[in-house]
Amino acid sequence: MNIEAVKSIYFFEMARTRRTLLQSVVSPVISTSLYFIVFGAAIGARIQEINGVSYGAFITPGLMMLTLLTQCIANGSFGIYFPKFTGTVYEVLSSPISMMEIVLGYVGAAATKGLMIGTIILVTASLFVDLSIAHPFVMLFFFVLTAITFSLFGFIIGIWAKDFEQLNLIPMLVVPPLVFLGGSFYSIDMLPPFWRTVSHFNPVLYLISGFRWSFFEISDVNPVASAVIILVFLTVCMSVLTWIFHTGYRLRN
């Protein structure tokens, strides 16, 4: 194992976060605060408690997932796409490093950034609402696994994308609807029966629901189903990456 190379990629990527501190850290804090002002204070004041949880607290896991998913995909995809775009990827490809080690460096950094921002949001949210985490280890399980899985998903998008439009296609057009319609800001019990059924086909619903269960022990779906879904998606991402490494798809061919 080429530990030095993994460390080099990881710290090189983390250094970019330091350089873009405003965009990386301050921006999600501001947008979270805005969500709390709009949904928590303005609208939330008119919404009754959901299963005994105040609306402000209820949306916190959803907000964390919303940010975690978008940030991990963005960081994971940009990390590998940017060297492809500038051409500096030649250096990574010609180094004595396996593809798994490349993933470890890039995805590790993307997941770390996602987890950092998720934690910042949790801290910011606790300034607005009373929060307690009923099952901290389950919360960490969903938190860390979602960060890793969606950073991997982002990495795949970064390899697949041929231009900036493709790079932004899934993060901009596919993920936000899935997250917003996945119960970030409401319980699907509030939806009409038809849309409640449709929501069950949205994988993000399971992530948010499981994550929310770890906080408040309330969920739209069984938390075990949530854990299975995230593990299945992780396996799918790993399988696609293994195929990419095997064929050199859009990297070495």
Binding site: N2, I3, E4, A5, K7, S8, I9, F12, A15, E91, V92, S95, P96, I97
Partner: peptide, 14 residues
Amino acid sequence: WNTVSFSRGLHGKK
């Protein structure tokens, strides 16, 4: 300095 040091690390050298 950083980019040259990065290259050394990538090749597994301390």
